[in-house]
């Protein structure tokens, strides 16, 4: 896979996001649910098709899988004249403050590309699934070998100046690729005052231009990772080192100041 070759150029880890960050602007209003992106994604990433059944809906497969990085959700809301049929791309958001990267214990398994994408390297993944817990959007999936798989913004395409397969295929511009800043100003120009993911989690790499509330599309109104992760990352993790260092320092101090409890028997040798 070409991914590994590109990978060599990539910085292995870290959350410092490049200033010329690339991203996607998803406009569900423009999405016609054709799922060209779903197929294009599979084609580029050489992902097999899974056997499925019709569950009484167009939406299929029922969830993201290690073989499905991008899925169009079909949501029917209301009835009669108020009926709406919504289509929305579900995939990795490439957060600036990426919960998955925060908790990943294997450096390089998840990594930030020069373009700001959160990519993965299956060879480095140790299969702990912490990233599943760390993700506020429930995106990462594990393959049969227990290795992580998810959208990587076609890091092996964008590194060479191509668009991600999904954006390339989209006939209506519902998935638009470009410099994140330019996407933001473009969205403003076409009338979207605020974007989902503009500032959430440090700014998402995948921005959504919604007219309705995000929850309408099954997304959290205010995305954030689990509080235990912030607690751990913000307080406890430094505390562990402080604890270790502190304990050693305390022992040394005690030894010097109070001193050991000698057995007063004049030496037992």
């Amino acid at each position: 896979m070409a991914l590994e070759q590109v990978d060599i150029k990539r910085r292995l880890s870290g959350v410092d996001v490049p200033t010329r960050r690339k991203g996607l602007l998803v406009t569900p209003e423009l999405c016609i649910g054709c799922r060209g992106c779903q197929t294009a994604c599979k084609e580029w990433n050489k992902l097999p098709g899974d056997r499925t059944v019709n569950r009484g809906t167009y939406e299929n497969p029922p969830d993201l899988t290690p073989n499905l990085f991008n899925r169009i959700r079909f949501v029917e809301v209301g009835s009669g004249d108020a009926l709406k049929w919504l289509f929305i791309s579900q995939r990795c958001m490439h957060c600036t403050d990426a919960g998955c990267m925060k908790v990943c214990p294997a450096p390089g398994a998840l990594y930030r590309t020069d373009e700001g994408a959160v990519a993965f390297n299956k060879d480095k993944c140790i299969g702990c699934k912490f990233c599943v817990a760390g993700c506020p959007f429930n995106i990462p999936r594990y393959d049969e070998q227990g290795r992580v798989a998810k959208c990587h913004l076609c890091s092996d395409r964008i590194a060479y100046g191509l668009q991600p397969a999904c954006a390339k295929t989209c006939p209506t511009g519902a998935i638009r690729f470009g410099d994140r800043e330019e996407l933001v100003s473009y969205a403003k120009n076409v009338g979207f005052k605020s974007l989902y993911g503009m500032n959430d989690l440090g700014g998402l790499g995948v921005l959504y231009a919604f007219k309705e509330k995000p929850s309408y599309y099954g997304l959290p109104d205010k995305p954030d990772f689990a509080p235990t992760i912030s607690l751990w990352k913000g307080i406890l993790k430094p505390l562990a080192l402080i604890g270790l260092g502190g304990a050693l320092a305390a022992a040394a101090t005690h030894y010097i100041t109070v001193g050991p409890k000698e057995t007063d028997e004049g030496g037992e040798e």
């Binding site: 912490f130 689990a226 235990t228 751990w232 406890l236 604890g243 304990a247 022992a251 030894y255 050991p260």
Partner: peptide
């Protein structure tokens, strides 16, 4: 995963703090 991860890490801190002291107390201090 979240719960277990948190618990694992919390316990880790306790050990990170307590075990060095345990070693100190059982050697140099006494």
């Amino acid at each position: 995963i979240l719960f277990a991860h948190f618990l694992h890490n919390l316990s880790y801190i306790v050990f990170a703090f307590a075990v060095p002291l345990h070693i100190y107390l059982s050697t140099a201090a006494n």
